[in-house]
Amino acid sequence: MSRMPAPAEAVVGVDGLLEVDGLVIDLPAAGGGVRVVDRVTFDIPPATTVGLIGESGSGKTMTANAVIGLLPDGAVTGGHLRWRGSPGEDLLQASPARRRRLRGHEIAMIFQDPLAALNPTQTIGRQVGEILRRAGRPRAEVRGRVLELLERAGIPEPAARMRSYPHEFSGGMRQRAMIALALAGSPALLLADEPTTALDVTVQARILRLLRSIQEEQGLAMLLVSHDLRVVAHVAHQVVVMYAGRVAERGPTGAVLAAPAHPYSRALVESVPAVRSRTALAHPLPGTPATPANRPPGCAFHPRCPLARERCRTEEPPARPVAPGRWAACHFAEELLPR
């Protein structure tokens, strides 16, 4: 992936557009339920991109699906999703009708697989237009707004391509169509779940630039879910690092990448040296990632952690403030930070 300048740090200290507070998600499994998300807490300020990073199985997508209301009934068993400030509106207490009104309008989502998310029997233009019609746009305005959205998403010759079906688009073009679809409802929050995973590196960079420019120009907040630290480093103002369903660290992206306060965050940075230096050598993470189904006692990362001590094996570290605007769930975070 070509390098992009890091985004400027967002203004901190404002009320969150969305506050995720102690979110708990339990899913049924053989032999009993599995806690796939365990007391996850972070906030998304207005006009800010927050990167949700972690290896597969860390609970990132489950967290995003909880926000937009795509989990099975009863899966969320604890916590709050406070919308538009504190106390705000708790989305977990909202009626199904209210969640449907929010979805696609105030909160929209870009999925990892646009071919599966788009309707194969309808043209791209019709699908984008349907969102506009449901939002109450006059029919006379819909076509012009569809063309405007497709053009904004970087789709060439939008007047012709709006008549195309999803299978007639390339992977990168389908992702652009998903972006146009997501923007049709004029959302305040955009959830992007691994939006560049299936694309080659050149197309990835173009999509990331597009998302970043849209976020900055329209003042959207965005939650970017990714397993790729390079993607988050290029786009996110703040980062939330997840491991085995829990938050390991959160804070401003530049500060976390420059001086991680959790051994897992540091291992992620060292495994992808390009986020800090072109010449540094990569150090792959040792061991097998823990998952919510096989989460060890104490600190979930301790079997892979070079700094682990007896306390780490028996006592789960709470997420706590370790520097201005930064939180880490490590007993010995201060030893990792510059003195």
Rank of each mutant, 00 (worst) to 15 (best):
T61C: 14
G85N: 07
R326M: 10
L285A: 14
S170G: 12
P284L: 08
P338C: 10
T202I: 11
P46Y: 12
H262S: 01
D15T: 07
A184P: 00
T77F: 07
G129E: 06
G144D: 14
V256G: 10
N65G: 01
T49G: 09
V142W: 04
L132K: 04
L190S: 11
P252A: 14
I110A: 14
L220H: 04
P72Y: 07
T202F: 07
G59E: 02
A192I: 03
D193E: 10
P284G: 11
R103Q: 10
S86A: 15
S95N: 01
A308N: 06
A47V: 01
L257D: 05
P72Q: 02
Q238M: 12
T253V: 12
G245I: 02
R133F: 05
L208G: 09
V225P: 00
F301I: 00
L336K: 07
G13P: 03
T279Q: 13
V275C: 09
L92T: 00
V240G: 05
Q218F: 15
V225C: 08
H262N: 06
A274W: 02
S271D: 08
C305F: 12
V34Q: 09
Y165R: 03
L70S: 04
A29N: 04
V322I: 15
R313V: 02
D90Y: 13
V239D: 03
P324M: 12
D43V: 08
E157M: 09
A319T: 03
I214C: 12
V272C: 14
R137V: 15
R134H: 14
V201N: 04
P273I: 00
R304E: 06
G154T: 03
R145K: 15
H331T: 01
L118R: 00
M173G: 01
R278P: 15
T77N: 04
S170A: 13
A177L: 08
P166D: 11
P120S: 15
P87N: 11
S271F: 10
H234P: 00
G32H: 03
M109S: 09
R295S: 11
A274T: 11
A108N: 01
C330V: 02
M178S: 15
T63W: 12
A177W: 10
P96D: 05
H234D: 15
Q204H: 11
S56V: 09
L102R: 00
T121Y: 13
A177C: 15
P289L: 13
A192L: 06
L210A: 10
G129A: 13
H167A: 15
G57S: 13
E168K: 05
G325H: 08
E310K: 00
P87R: 07
H167Q: 10
G54E: 10
G57L: 13
G144T: 02
P187V: 11
A221Q: 02
R3T: 15
G88Y: 09
A29D: 10
D200Y: 06
Q127M: 14
Q175K: 08
R35K: 14
L208T: 06
T48F: 09
D26L: 01
G32L: 04
A160S: 14
P195K: 14
L102Y: 10
V36H: 04
I179F: 11
G51Q: 06
T77Q: 06
R326H: 15
P289H: 13
V20N: 02
I107N: 03
T197Q: 08
H167P: 02
